[in-house]
Design a protein around this nucleic acid. Structure first.
Lengths: 127, 127
DNA sequence: TCTTGACTTGGAGTGAACTCGAGATATTAT
DNA sequence: ATAATATCTCGAGTTCACTCCAAGTCAAGA
């Protein structure tokens, strides 16, 4: 699979795909004899994982470390497990913050809706 | 309340508090006769809101627009309502991405735990 | 073979959100 | 009054995650 196809399939720019590889966020991609990237199934799995992690807001640094550990071999399995658990905890924290903010927005939205409906402004301050 | 106290109370650096005010993410803060910031209840409400929005990952631009609209007066209430609804939808989307990633991490974590327990590596590729 | 278009690398540029530093002014303690 | 500490503004610097550019290489069609 060419970089163009991967770019379209996963909606990631070609520049970003090369960038991810360059910084080690995914392992080196399979190449043709001419040096052109030719993504195999395994390469695609890495791209998918990278996209998933980034879309949730996890730092590239975490993925780089994970790829590095994977490259190091089986002895790093406990370290990889710990890394994944840590990142998961970060996401659970982040989700909590989002929930709190959604709650706050709902509260404000409710007040604005009432104001728009009735034409009455029943509050002064913006909490 | 001084900037130092606000900084400690909300765990936001003094630089960031000044920055938020400078870019219009919160309205101008009450000052003493000497020009020193003296945060009042209402100023604190804005700080809180700004912190909440940012902690969820919403862009400063959205808050700046919201503050601008609020300053414009009651005629912008429908626009403010729309802005809040849009930001809420962004958060719901983001939460969905986080949930998907947590699911994926759980899957991988489950496999790593089994590998650590049993000492057996039952897979080759990293999906 | 020649041309056209896709792909390559390395490095520089961008935008968002801070973060820091310098020099000036204000407040507090002695 | 003076020294020490806190706060002020303004502009520059930093970090993160891309994104773009230039100059060169590779591959497919006429």
């Amino acid at each position: 699979m060419t970089i163009k196809e991967v770019s379209e399939k996963y909606d990631i720019s070609q520049d970003t795909l090369r960038y991810y590889e360059r910084i080690g966020m995914i392992p080196p991609v399979t190449r043709t004899s001419g040096g052109i990237r030719d993504y195999q199934e395994e390469d695609l799995n890495w791209v998918q994982l990278a996209k998933c992690m980034r879309s949730a807001g996890l730092p590239v640094e975490a993925m780089i470390e994970y790829v590095r550990l994977t490259h190091e071999g089986d002895s790093t399995i406990p370290a990889r497990l710990q890394l994944l658990v840590e990142q998961k905890e970060i996401l659970i924290e982040q989700r909590k913050k989002i929930d709190i903010t959604i709650e706050r927005l709902n509260y404000k939205i409710g007040r604005y809706e009432k104001a728009v409906e009735t034409g009455v402004l029943s509050w002064e301050d913006d909490e």
